[in-house]
């Protein structure tokens, strides 16, 4: 107590504000009071949990912290990523640290890039009852049911593009009455699309040929031998591609290019 009393006035006032804004939450049914500004993840830590499972990038992209919650008086199960969702009073919270989703094992190289492949590897896709729970369960606002119906139709490109933002948290699969593992269907479609259907980057093949043919080895050996001042001089005189230049831009000085 004496520590608090010796703090400058402003800090005391601030601490009081923080106390005033504590809200009750229920972690797996147990009540804790936490500052209202925290995310669910930080609130768990504030409550005393040392997170091991259910915590990853802490930035909304790795999908480790899928969380379900509910408010008293409501039957509705709501979802969010614990690292992205701010606590609200009276939330009942449970994390989904792991989901035993079915994943097919395949050789991407020889797998036919046709719609039927999804059905062959994940025949349960046809069990979809169109309830839309997956879409409502997606913390990334992806129309999951929409891409599952495209998967049923065999439209790999559409599945690939509309599932692109998926963080594979598993919330859709956890709640699916048809026991689909939507996120694994999504990545299968994306890989098939990118490997076999998307137009190939032809310039890439040329660039690979150049380095395999050791085309720049001599120039690089010479650069490596240069002293600091000489290297700096070359660096400073590099022609910079303008920001607003379009794809057709080429430098005026053509030396050391791959062509």
């Amino acid at each position: 107590m004496s520590k608090t009393a010796s703090k400058p006035k402003k800090a005391v006032a601030k601490a009081k504000d923080a106390e005033a804004s504590l809200v009750p939450i229920f972690v797996m049914g147990k009540r804790y009071e936490v500052p209202a500004s925290l995310t669910i993840q930080k609130a768990l830590e504030y409550a005393g949990y040392q997170l091991v499972r259910g915590c990853g990038c802490r930035g909304g992209i790795c999908g480790a912290c899928g969380t379900v919650y509910r408010f008293p008086g409501s039957y509705r199960i709501e979802v969010g990523l614990a690292c992205q969702t701010v606590v609200q009073p009276e939330m009942y919270i449970a994390q989904l640290p792991f989901f035993p989703g079915n994943k097919a094992v395949y050789d991407i190289e020889t797998l036919p890039a046709v719609g039927g492949t999804i059905a062959a590897l994940y025949p349960e896709v046809f069990k979809c009852v169109g309830c839309g729970t997956c879409t409502r369960s997606c913390p990334m606002d992806i129309d999951v049911m929409g891409y599952i119906s495209k998967a049923i139709q065999g439209d790999l490109t559409a599945v690939a593009q509309s599932s692109f933002d998926c963080v594979m948290c598993g919330l859709c699969a956890a709640r699916c009455p048809a026991e689909e593992v939507q996120y694994n269907i999504g990545i299968l479609a994306r890989r098939l699309y990118a490997r076999h259907l998307a137009p190939k980057a032809k310039h890439l093949a040329e660039a690979v040929k150049n380095v395999e043919g050791k085309k720049f080895d001599k120039a690089l050996q010479e650069l490596k031998k240069k002293d600091l001042e000489a290297l700096k001089k070359i660096y400073k005189s590099l022609e910079i591609e303008p920001d607003m230049a379009d794809e057709s831009w080429t430098p005026t000085d053509k030396s050391f290019l791959g062509e």
């Binding site: 991407i108 190289e109 692109f164 994306r190 490997r195 076999h196 980057a201 032809k202 794809e247």
Partner: peptide, 27 residues
């Protein structure tokens, strides 16, 4: 790093990583 870079891009493309491309396939 710089000499292996194009090979790595080709490898990733082959693994089915979905890079942003123009309609003609240019990365």
């Amino acid at each position: 790093l710089v000499v292996e870079a194009p090979k790595v891009m080709a490898w990733l493309e082959k693994q089915g990583a979905m890079f942003s491309k123009y309609d003609d396939g240019r990365l």
